[in-house]
């Protein structure tokens, strides 16, 4: 009985997550980000995002797991632009997860906010609850003009209509890295061994990805940067993405 109680207690946060080896985390340095959108296309290529077409774009039905938000400050001529890449923040206390009636989204042991496409029934509650608006719905079954379908990544599902989708931190790459690590004497995944497509492409190296449970990882060091903050921190969603605000010379 006492072990049962112990076990129940172990399901409590944060102890539940502490047992595990990884907490995938990203830092994005806004002082490096130039808004070039290489990450946006990289994501589209890696994750089989559909080409929705002009008409559907006009209806705000685009699907971009990562997008660049732009904010102006001031008026001409003292006008400034701030870019901020917005992708799933993989919140530890994600509002979207409790929204799903069928467990299509939940939090896994690596600190990732999962999305199981083939479990989704499309209530879209998660998208309403998400304060970062990074969940995208498949309003249609999208097709690719032949032969564009040949570039589809076989490691990622092609989603059908009625399914919610979002950034997965490129789970397929994490999976491959873990697989390789396992082959290699069951070691843990090394820092830098796995990078999501957006991080890999970023020409200014504004994005850093890694395991924040590893104190030696690059991302752990970046997280300690005094410029670090989390977007909409007051909502207490505990995002896994730390942004570094713009600095001044």
């Amino acid at each position: 009985m006492s072990t049962f109680v112990e076990k129940l207690r172990s399901y409590r946060k944060p102890g539940y997550y502490d047992e595990f080896d990884y907490h995938w985390t990203m830092t994005i340095d806004l002082d490096r980000c130039t808004g070039c959108e290489a990450c946006v296309v990289a994501c589209q290529a890696e994750n089989n995002l559909p080409i929705v077409g002009e008409e559907r774009f006009a209806q705000s039905r685009e699907i971009k797991w990562i997008r660049i938000e732009r904010y102006w400050e001031g008026e001409y001529p003292n006008v400034k632009m701030g870019f901020i890449p917005m992708l799933c923040q993989q919140c530890d206390d994600a509002p979207c997860e409790t929204a799903c009636p069928v467990y299509a989204t939940y939090h896994n042991q690596d600190g990732l906010n999962t999305q199981i496409y083939n479990r989704c029934i499309g209530t879209r509650t998660c998208a309403v609850y998400c304060p970062y608006e990074v969940r995208y719905f498949n309003w249609f079954t999208y097709t690719w003009d032949e032969p564009l379908e040949q570039q589809l990544n076989p490691d990622v599902s092609v989603r059908e209509k009625g399914v919610m989708e979002k950034c997965t931190f490129c789970i397929q790459r994490i999976r491959i890295a873990k697989d390789n690590a396992k082959d290699d004497d069951e070691r843990r995944v090394r820092d830098g061994e796995v990078v999501p497509a957006c991080v890999q492409s970023c020409p200014t190296e504004a994005m850093v990805f890694g395991n924040s449970k590893d104190p030696g990882s690059k991302v752990s060091k970046m997280m300690k940067n005094p410029r670090g903050y989390k977007v909409l921190e007051e909502l207490n969603t505990s995002p896994s993405i730390v942004y570094l605000t713009k600095a001044h010379s």
């Binding site: 290489a38 032949e146 020409p203 190296e205």
Partner: peptide
């Protein structure tokens, strides 16, 4: 140095352009 821009990524669209 391991990086690409948006246009570079979209090269696949050129290869498989319908």
């Amino acid at each position: 140095q391991g990086r690409t821009c948006a246009r570079g990524q979209a090269g696949l669209n050129a290869l498989y352009n319908p």
